[in-house]
Design a protein around this nucleic acid. Structure first.
Lengths: 213, 213
DNA sequence: AGGAGCATCAGCCGATCGGCTGATGGAGGG
DNA sequence: CCCTCCATCAGCCGATCGGCTGATGCTCCT
């Protein structure tokens, strides 16, 4: 199993990164890069057509988000294992990506050897995590997961976005065609979810968690 | 001038990106990659020792910021032209980097050909900017340059940081050993500088500009 | 000497916010 | 069918905020 050739699909919006990865894997006869995609939508399509063992996937892409692409692949029952390869260990998409079905999660600054090992592991279905990611995961699991009790609803996010622009409650109400009372309700709720007491702190926390910005 | 071999130094904290760039330039006999650095400090040192024509520099790096490295190179009168190669067109370091002495500014998703052209241009001392960056620059210049009228004082930043944590004016006053009236004065001033009307928007703008977060 | 910018303070007042209590209807899961 | 979550709305009230006007002392630069 370990000595079979592993086929790959590379998904990243940066040509430079795609080149780097392709070059890396080309130098090892144990791998075969079947194709490249620059966005999530294209990735899903190519994954179906080329049927690679492993998909190396960047998360932040203009043309179709990585997380959605992973979810879509899972929904279609694609055989390929998805190995997320991203720049940020602070990425707020870490947990969603894994929930969506990613087999592993590596940072781009991982050394070559680690990458190769990770791809082989992923091909066999084993989970691989960067140490930084792993530690974030365990702490995320330790803390009651933040299980949805802290996920803002779509409406709450809308309100929060307007708050970040300096919009008053009354103006928000007009903007969203709801009453001021409802705006205040949404605010009270999202304060609770974000663990803050006022709008300024809510905006700060939202930026820290990647909800805004 | 155009047909001399151009020597390069690659600076990026990601091995993958360094590989990608090295591979790209290796394929063209007109370029010679002298070395690689993973951080700003190392970059300055290598630039002095290797004396490349062009330094390809990432901005966001853990080991020594790119902007500081550029400034340091300029201070030392290094011959090398610095071509910033970054991921973000929203990067708040754009203008500082150019002020620090960068010859050009490209986004990583630029196609190969553009990169080659840009490096040759940079080697000749010509300025190269990604379209997105260029447009940001002109607008930055059109607006009176943000001339210091919009730079927060140290005290104002302190107040703003506390605001972002949800601290009330009274608490901020206690925290900083000043009166509540003074806190309000600082706030009024920084609202003016940031072009906002309330604390929530101030926090948002501060995050956008990299003042907070 | 004078101006600009910063940090400090005062008082007043209307606008806005946030907490509290309580309620309704719709959607989705068990 | 019941429960939960979401979105919607109401009214009350004290706390907080932001604008306005005006003032002092300090430092740095011209």
């Amino acid at each position: 199993m370990t000595d079979r050739i592993i086929t790959l699909l590379i998904v990243d919006d940066h040509p430079v990164v795609r080149d780097g990865l392709r070059g890396m894997f080309a130098s090892d006869p144990g791998f075969d890069v079947l194709g490249e995609a620059a966005g999530g939508v294209e990735a899903v399509e190519l994954a179906q057509r080329l049927d690679p063992d492993v998909v190396l996937m960047d998360l932040r892409m203009p043309a179709g988000g990585g997380v959605q692409a992973i979810a879509e692949l899972a929904r279609r029952g694609t055989r390929a294992k998805v190995l997320v390869l991203t720049t940020y260990d602070t990425d707020s998409d870490t947990i969603p990506a894994i929930e969506a079905g990613a087999t592993g999660y590596l940072l781009k600054d991982a050394p070559r050897g680690e990458l190769f090992t990770a791809v082989r592991a992923a091909a066999e279905g084993r989970t691989v995590l960067s140490p930084a990611i792993a530690s974030r995961l365990v702490s995320a699991v330790r803390n009651p997961a933040v299980p949805a009790a802290k996920v803002l609803s779509a409406r709450e996010r809308e309100v929060l976005e307007l708050v970040a622009r300096g919009t008053s409650n009354r103006e928000i109400a007009r903007e969203l065609f709801i009453s001021e009372a409802t705006v205040k309700t949404h605010l009270t709720h999202l304060y609770g979810k974000l663990g803050v007491k006022d709008r300024a702190a809510a905006v700060a926390v939202a930026y820290d968690r990647g909800i805004l910005g």
